[in-house]
Amino acid sequence: MKIKALWWALVLLLAACDKAPAPEESFAGLGSDAADFAQVIPGKAFTFPEDHGPHDGFRIEWWYVTANLKDAQGNLFGVQWTLFRNALKAGPTQPAWHDSTIWLGHAAVTSATRHYAAERYARGGVGQAGAQALPFSAWIDDWSFATRPGAASALADMQLKAGGPQFAYDLHLISSRPLVLQGDSGYSRKSDQGQASYYYSQPFFTAAGSVSIDGKTYQVSGPAWLDREWSSQPLAASQTGWDWFSLHLDRGEQLMLFRVRQKDGAGYLTGTWIDQQGHTETLHNADIQLAPLATTDIDGRRIPTRWSLKIPSKHLDITPQAVNPKAWMNLSIPYWEGPVQFDGGVGYLEMTGY
């Protein structure tokens, strides 16, 4: 998944409405009607590098990178970089200040003892933030995720940069592996009612570079993961939040799975098993056994930070747990996001709606 448009409430604020909108039932308003916008339908033929860029006509979109890093002493770090695009109204993008697009950036660094996050937002059309397909670049202010000069292809050789008052990172990401289309050839369902996104990933990045926390810089390396999604209404009105995992297994496979929670207590659970060659297999609810084992109290919320995850058909039985259980993103709309580790690998976990 990465249903990552956490910024919807912020967008409504930035739209400068005279009257506050009625509260949405779904998490962050992501289940609100989007009939005037472009719709996600099965059978899309993805085209690269064009689909690396923005998708005019869709309401919400994001470029999302996480990295599980380690220094020479074995200290663990997590890095997150996300750029969101939101169209305030349907129709073609307008030039300059007539552009009604809102851009939002999230960046974070996590260690075993510290977690820092920052947020930036910008109006579209004036160059402060944006994305382009060729040469690929996504940016907001001086935060950027971009193809390095001379790269063989758009996502083969990348530079990732961001920072805040107490952290910074500058990472070189490389991969020669194929992109992965999530769900049904890139059509990723989020509910039994038909809500969906277009979704692809690059789970085979290797990252190396520097991470700075509280003025101290560490040289780090490790696996990284890119998610790309766009949609107009990714949730049903009854869905309240999600638990999303991206996992790098030491034995060479990758795993993405998510559970979208609903008001009645049930959830929509699915995932993608990615073998060492990049071939995929869709996992359904019956294939996955997922349950929280322990929680952490944060900001008046009880957040699951240790999980049991079993996929019997893949002989997988693991217990992902947070590197730092206090990895709370205290931003415009708060959520939990941080690195996890388990016997046999590492990964990232995002949890919203708690």
Rank of each mutant, 00 (worst) to 15 (best):
F145P: 03
K314L: 05
A286E: 14
V323Q: 07
A112I: 00
I140K: 03
L283T: 07
D71F: 00
D297T: 00
P165H: 10
Y200N: 01
A327D: 15
V11L: 08
N330M: 00
I41S: 14
D184N: 09
F245C: 08
T270K: 10
Q254E: 08
G78A: 03
Q132Y: 13
A208T: 12
Y200R: 06
E350R: 07
G194L: 06
V109Y: 13
P149I: 09
F342H: 10
Y335N: 01
G150E: 14
K4V: 04
S153I: 08
Q80T: 13
R302K: 15
Y187N: 03
P320K: 03
G163Y: 14
G338W: 15
G338F: 15
K216T: 10
I274Y: 01
D287L: 08
T319D: 08
A151W: 07
A162E: 06
P312I: 13
Y354A: 05
I311F: 12
S308V: 02
A35G: 08
K216R: 13
A22F: 10
A67Q: 09
W143G: 02
W307K: 02
P92D: 04
A118F: 15
F46S: 01
G300R: 08
D56I: 11
I140G: 04
Y218W: 13
E50I: 00
L290E: 04
P234Y: 15
S188N: 11
L349N: 00
E24V: 00
S153G: 09
D250E: 12
Y354F: 12
G183V: 06
W143E: 02
A34G: 11
L316E: 05
S308H: 14
T282D: 01
D141P: 05
L12T: 11
G130M: 07
S238G: 11
Q289N: 05
S175P: 10
E25S: 09
A156R: 12
G150C: 14
V211N: 00
H98K: 01
I140P: 01
Q239Y: 11
Y199F: 13
A138V: 15
L257W: 14
D264T: 05
A28P: 02
L269M: 14
D56F: 12
I311E: 08
R59W: 13
S100N: 00
R228Y: 14
W8Q: 11
I318K: 01
G300I: 07
S232M: 01
L247Y: 04
R259W: 12
F27K: 04
A168M: 05
W8G: 07
Y64V: 05
H315G: 01
E281S: 11
A87I: 08
S197N: 07
P223Q: 09
A162G: 06
Q80S: 11
L226Q: 01
F342G: 08
Q341M: 06
G271K: 08
V40L: 12
G74F: 09
Q94R: 14
A224H: 10
V340P: 01
A5P: 13
T280M: 03
W225M: 09
Q39F: 14
G183N: 07
A146M: 11
E229I: 03
Y200P: 03
A112L: 05
W7N: 02
D250T: 03
S232T: 03
Q254N: 11
P54R: 02
D36W: 09
L226M: 02
G43H: 12
W230Y: 12
D184A: 04
R59T: 05
